[in-house]
Amino acid sequence: MYSNILVALSLEHGISEPALAAARALLSEGGKITAAHIHEPPNRQIMYYMDEGIAEKSLEKAKASLAERLKDEAEVSSVLIESQSAGRAITEYANKHGIDCIVLASHKPGMKDF
């Protein structure tokens, strides 16, 4: 059993319940679950061609989506991490915050994933 679990969620792929259920099953009594979404900011070269403020709007939309996704999960805290590398961001967060288990949510790939 684990006392500090990080559940990495993708806001673009809907379902988070199975990942959160897996985390609950692995959680020791008195432990905590943190749900994280890694928000990838637009590439700097692309930012030149985008409207001003679009990166901030994208971040705010991600924050709202994460809050909406977890609105019925009172015992789950959340964190939104900005990074160009999801894997690196997850492991760095885990190391910094004493995470002893990481649960990765999965999705069925669509055509755009291939």
Rank of each mutant, 00 (worst) to 15 (best):
I99Q: 09
L11N: 00
K57H: 09
A62W: 04
A8C: 08
V103P: 04
I5G: 10
E75R: 11
I38M: 06
D113E: 02
A8I: 04
G14S: 08
L70E: 08
S106V: 15
L26S: 08
C101Q: 09
A36K: 06
R44K: 12
Q45C: 11
E75A: 08
E68F: 08
V79P: 05
Y93K: 01
A64Q: 14
R44G: 12
S10D: 12
E17W: 12
S16F: 13
E52D: 08
E40R: 13
K108I: 15
E68C: 14
E73C: 01
S106W: 13
P41K: 02
E12Q: 08
F114T: 15
S3H: 02
S85D: 13
C101W: 08
A8R: 01
V76E: 03
M1I: 07
P18H: 03
M1G: 12
I15M: 12
M50P: 09
G14D: 09
T91Q: 10
E40N: 15
N95S: 11
H97N: 10
V103C: 11
K61S: 08
K71I: 05
A55H: 07
M47C: 13
L70M: 03
E82W: 02
G98W: 02
I102Y: 12
N43L: 05
I33E: 04
H107W: 04
E52R: 07
E40Q: 07
A67G: 08
T91G: 10
Y2G: 09
R88V: 01
S10R: 14
H97C: 09
L66E: 11
A21L: 07
E75I: 08
K96G: 11
P109R: 04
S85T: 08
E75G: 14
R88Y: 01
K112Y: 13
Q45I: 14
H39Q: 06
S3L: 04
L104A: 04
E75N: 15
I90E: 00
M111N: 08
H107I: 13
P109C: 05
I99P: 00
A23T: 02
G98N: 06
A105N: 10
R88F: 03
S65H: 11
I99K: 09
Q45P: 11
A22S: 15
L9Q: 05
I15Q: 11
E29D: 09
L59D: 02
A94T: 01
S85W: 02
K108S: 15
A35V: 02
M47Y: 01
E29M: 12
I46V: 13
S83Q: 00
S83W: 00
G31S: 04
Y2C: 06
K57D: 06
A62G: 03
N4Y: 01
H39R: 07
K63I: 10
L27E: 07
E17C: 15
K63V: 09
A105W: 03
M50Y: 09
N4M: 03
M1W: 11
